[in-house]
Simulated scan of single mutants.
Amino acid sequence: MVQSPDGREPRRSYYVRNPWRTWSSAAFGGASAMLTATTVFYALGRLPLVLVGVSVVLAVAVFGFGLYARLRAARFDAQIGGR
């Protein structure tokens, strides 16, 4: 380990990047944005009902992935903590 000029070792960092946490946040935000855009365009009469159904099914799938990613993030954190 590299020592600082005063002879002491630098303080160790215990931060570990959890890659699943960003995926879960992105999935929840993406599902929300998708439903918001669908609602706005349907209210303006620019989106047929069939495409609304497709959009809702896709948003539910993305939300489900967000739940899965949140579960994986919790497992990742528990594994690091030794629980």
Rank of each mutant, 00 (worst) to 15 (best):
D77Q: 10
R83L: 07
G82M: 04
Y68S: 02
V60N: 06
Y14L: 13
G45P: 07
I80D: 00
F41C: 10
E9P: 07
G7Q: 06
R46P: 03
V57P: 00
P19L: 06
A74D: 11
F76E: 05
R72S: 04
G82A: 04
G45R: 07
V56Y: 13
W20A: 11
A78L: 07
A69Y: 08
L58F: 07
W20C: 09
V16T: 15
S25A: 09
S25N: 10
G66F: 12
V2K: 10
V50I: 05
V60I: 14
A27R: 09
V52M: 07
T39D: 09
L49K: 15
R46Y: 11
Y68N: 02
P5C: 01
R72K: 14
A78E: 08
V40N: 04
E9V: 04
G30N: 12
G82S: 04
Y15L: 11
V56E: 12
L44H: 05
G53K: 12
V62C: 09
L67Q: 13
P10D: 04
W23V: 06
R83S: 07
V54L: 09
G82D: 03
Y68T: 06
V56A: 14
M34G: 06
L49V: 14
G64P: 03
R70G: 08
L35F: 03
V16H: 06
R72F: 04
R83W: 02
T22N: 06
G81R: 14
V54A: 05
T22V: 14
L58Y: 01
V62M: 13
G53R: 14
S24L: 02
R8F: 10
S13G: 03
A27I: 00
R17E: 09
A27T: 02
D77Y: 02
F63R: 11
V62Y: 08
V56K: 13
A26L: 11
